[in-house]
Amino acid sequence: MNTTLIVHAGSESALSSHHAIWRPAAGLAAVMLVTCGLVYSGSVTGLAGLLFPQQATGSLVLVDGKAVGSALIAQPFSSDVYFHGRPSSVNTDPMSTGGSNLAPSNPALRDRVAAESAVLTERYQLAATELPIDLLASSGSGVDPHISPEAAALQLKRVAAARSIPSDLLNKLVEQQTEAPQWGIFGQPRVNVLLLNLALDKDFPLQQSGGSASAQ
């Protein structure tokens, strides 16, 4: 190997050669800011935008050419005519996402869950211990777009009643909207609440006009 060895006898002599020490350091910073900060980010972002235009811009869902939301972001639903998503500690605001950050030992968590559990047992006339966990546990992002198939099944009767449609028809729709684990193996089966509700509005439109309903 044809190498020369830079050997500094002591740190004094090493530090005395300012040029040999500061210039590469400054050069490295400059070169890297350009390469990684500009060239890499720019080219990759541009290429991704070209290849996957829909995904790259937030996976927006269009109805009649108008964006009605992102397939990746949960929306708040409280009316009986819609399926409801998971509890969110940020009111599903995508600009301030986050979880509850409450530890299992935190009494605040227990209080919150107890209150919510009371509401749900009342609403669905069910023993608390049969409530699907994802309807009580707040998500990590606060904008989790999915619920479990069990959570959808629980809400089925309520929505069917509110929309006066047969349960089995609605059941079919829910099954259509249920995603299996991706590629058959990754992740959990799940239902995208926004997409389900959009399909609901499309297949079983509400009597009232004006698009979105507010049954209360």
């Binding site: 509850s100 227990r110 869950v113 699907p132 546990a137 990590g140 992002s141 999915h146």
Partner: peptide, 19 residues
């Protein structure tokens, strides 16, 4: 533990995503 008696006794989903 906070969910004891308040929901199904399944895994801890607090702070987790369904997918």
């Amino acid at each position: 533990v906070a969910f004891t008696g308040l929901a199904q006794q399944t895994g801890n989903m607090e702070g987790k995503e369904v997918r």
